[in-house]
């Protein structure tokens, strides 16, 4: 209730101010939602039936986020299906990465960030004040835009999550390391140099190492923030193949700028625009027969 009020207030504040947007969207309704969004008006999200039928691993519930006075996410409500790959697409600055970073509460590190609404991971609230953020993050894995291996050996990178939990059993660590590296399709390339510095790997290998690190602790949801944007096409191909393999075993939420990547790798796709969820449905439908013209325009590259 309170969250909606704040949203409304923010809407009112933004509405008349952004004068350069033509006011045509009022009558056009669903036809020109993007303009309406740009004008700061509340528009409903089009969520396909099929998404709602899936068992959700993560539920985003009327989630709003502000950086200082600027609202970055508007009233987002979306379930993320269990053991499927869900892609977040949309033009730059639409809040995809912000949403992703809100899932494991990395935005807590930004002093000016403020949220309303909630998210639930397998039914457990993420934004409850009593939640221990560290416990929470241990249930998720995350991979960033640029590969960020730690300044330590390949082996230590992979078992980092276990190390910080104080796991010292060599057998367990070795097993997890091998399984994770195999899971990230990196084992054959690095098995002979596990003790070498991770910084000596190529960019693509580093990114797969980061994926291995993220899946080492058996996360309930895997967050990928444009994992291929800093990679060359060959490395991108390998990482995409890897995401294909992860499908069905892990619940993956991936942010991407690349429409082909979204269509190739994901089961579900959500289209976001200026901090709002516009349309969300099975990837095949979003790319072939979306409900909204705007979504079609975006995914076919006519806009954005």
């Amino acid at each position: 209730m309170e969250s909606e009020q704040t949203t409304m207030e923010a809407t009112k504040k933004n509405g008349p101010g952004s004068g350069r947007t033509p006011d045509a969207g009022v009558e056009a309704g669903a036809a020109d939602r993007l303009l309406a969004v740009a004008a700061g008006r509340e528009v409903p999200s089009e969520v396909h039936e099929q998404v709602l039928r899936e068992r959700p691993v993560l539920e985003v519930d009327r989630f709003n986020l502000w950086y200082g006075a600027k609202q970055a996410l508007h009233n987002i409500t979306m379930p993320i299906p269990h053991n499927h790959v869900t892609a977040l697409v949309g033009p730059s600055g639409c809040g995809k990465s912000t949403l992703l970073r809100s899932v494991n509460r990395l935005n807590d590190l930004v002093p000016s960030a403020r949220t309303t609404g909630t998210m639930r991971l397998n039914g457990d609230s993420i934004y409850d004040p009593r939640v221990d953020v560290i416990e929470l993050r241990k249930r998720m894995g995350m991979v960033f835009q640029r590969p960020n291996p730690f300044p330590m050996s390949i082996y230590e990178n992979v078992v980092y999550a276990l190390r910080i939990d104080g796991e010292g059993n060599r057998g367990i660590l070795d097993e997890v390391c091998e399984m994770s590296l195999r899971g990230a399709a990196l084992w054959d390339e690095v098995k002979d140099r596990l003790k070498d510095s991770a910084l000596g790997l190529s960019g693509g290998q580093q990114q797969r190492l980061c994926i291995a690190r993220a899946i080492a602790a058996e996360p309930e949801v895997l967050l990928l923030d444009e994992p291929c944007s800093a990679l060359d096409p060959i490395a991108t191909g390998k990482v995409e193949d890897l995401i294909q393999e992860l499908r069905g075993r892990y619940s993956v939420l991936i942010v991407t700028h690349n429409m082909q990547q979204a269509s190739r790798t994901s089961d579900y796709t959500a289209f976001m625009y200026l901090g709002r969820l516009i349309e969300y449905g099975p990837t095949t439908e979003i790319f072939t027969k979306p409900i909204l013209r705007e979504t079609e325009a975006y995914v076919t590259g006519r806009f954005g």
């Binding site: 494991n104 990395l106 590190l109 560290i134 416990e135 993050r137 241990k138 249930r139 998720m140 894995g141 995350m142 960033f144 640029r146 960020n148 730690f150 300044p151 330590m152 980092y160 999550a161 190390r163 910080i164 939990d165 980061c210 690190r213 993220a214 602790a217 967050l223």
Partner: peptide, 27 residues
């Protein structure tokens, strides 16, 4: 020390002190 390393560590469920001790200080 690049912030991306700190974030990577936090995302693995490390506390601030663990991040400092294992990632930031060595680097």
């Amino acid at each position: 020390v690049p912030n991306s390393m700190r974030e990577g560590s936090y995302a693995c469920g490390a506390s601030k002190w663990q991040t400092i001790r294992r990632i930031v200080l060595p680097r």
